[in-house]
Simulated assay, not measured.
Amino acid sequence: MKKEWMEPVVEVQEFAANEYVAACGDSGKVYKFVCDAGQYGHNYNVYYYDGSGQKKYIAKEGSWGGWGSQAQFSGYHPCNKTHEAESDSGFISGFIDDQSTRDDEATPVVIWTENGTNVHCTTRLDINTWETAKS
């Protein structure tokens, strides 16, 4: 019996992670961002819109707006530090307004409240462009 020679063929399959294989999703992802919204030395009011479209403040001159408490606070100002925060730690879309001007600038920001203890804002609005850390 005569055997016929065949050229070897290599098949490559692309790996596609799915819910049964992937160990992690966005849950638990840690984002790095710089608290850089506004200018140091200025105080800002920080606002967001609630589900009903009402403008609410988080940080306002004369009070730490930690969700309504009235402790002394001089308003938000950037700390210019890099923070690490888990994806589910409460990022909020909002805006800042410089208290020293009459105009309502309403500079768009992403707000992070560090579990309700402090307010940090960044003007880098697209969270998909932020650096991430291993969780």
Results as ranks from 00 to 15, higher is better:
98 D>R: 00
9 V>S: 12
86 E>H: 14
47 Y>N: 10
10 V>G: 05
126 D>L: 03
14 E>G: 13
76 Y>A: 06
38 G>A: 05
51 G>S: 14
17 A>G: 11
48 Y>Q: 11
129 T>E: 02
135 S>P: 15
59 A>D: 14
115 N>L: 05
8 P>R: 13
46 V>H: 07
82 T>N: 10
47 Y>E: 04
37 A>C: 08
100 S>C: 09
114 E>I: 03
40 Y>F: 01
69 S>N: 13
3 K>Y: 09
124 R>M: 09
32 K>C: 02
24 C>V: 02
15 F>D: 03
69 S>Y: 01
78 P>S: 05
25 G>Y: 06
27 S>T: 12
90 G>Q: 10
59 A>N: 10
107 T>S: 14
66 G>M: 09
128 N>E: 08
66 G>S: 07
79 C>F: 00
16 A>I: 10
40 Y>T: 11
73 F>E: 15
75 G>F: 04
70 Q>K: 03
34 V>Y: 05
66 G>K: 11
84 E>I: 00
92 I>V: 10
22 A>T: 04
17 A>S: 09
127 I>P: 00
30 V>D: 01
74 S>G: 10
6 M>H: 13
8 P>I: 13
14 E>I: 09
135 S>Y: 13
1 M>G: 12
88 D>Q: 15
7 E>P: 03
103 D>C: 06
66 G>E: 09
2 K>E: 10
73 F>N: 15
128 N>K: 14
99 Q>K: 06
126 D>R: 04
59 A>W: 05
4 E>K: 11
66 G>V: 06
24 C>M: 10
128 N>Q: 13
60 K>W: 05
54 Q>H: 07
131 E>F: 03
21 V>S: 15
124 R>G: 03
127 I>L: 13
121 C>F: 08
55 K>C: 08
13 Q>T: 12
96 I>C: 02
24 C>P: 05
35 C>L: 03
49 Y>Q: 14
113 T>A: 09
79 C>A: 05
65 G>Y: 06
42 H>M: 08
87 S>R: 15
31 Y>E: 01
27 S>Y: 15
21 V>H: 03
15 F>P: 00
53 G>H: 10
28 G>A: 08
114 E>L: 02
14 E>Q: 13
131 E>L: 05
13 Q>D: 11
126 D>S: 09
32 K>N: 07
118 N>A: 10
97 D>A: 04
44 Y>R: 00
36 D>T: 03
12 V>P: 01
63 S>D: 15
97 D>T: 09
80 N>P: 01
68 G>Y: 00
19 E>C: 02
34 V>R: 15
90 G>F: 06
96 I>T: 02
25 G>S: 12
88 D>S: 13
129 T>C: 02
76 Y>N: 09
48 Y>F: 15
65 G>N: 11
35 C>Q: 08
128 N>A: 10
36 D>E: 15
91 F>R: 12
60 K>E: 13
120 H>D: 01
95 F>A: 09
12 V>R: 10
50 D>E: 07
112 W>V: 04
97 D>Y: 03
109 V>C: 08
66 G>R: 13
3 K>G: 07
70 Q>F: 00
88 D>R: 15
53 G>M: 09
79 C>Q: 05
87 S>N: 13
118 N>R: 14
86 E>G: 15
116 G>W: 07
61 E>M: 10
62 G>A: 04
1 M>A: 02
58 I>C: 02
11 E>D: 14
101 T>Q: 11
118 N>G: 04
23 A>V: 08
38 G>L: 05
62 G>I: 11
79 C>H: 04
114 E>P: 00
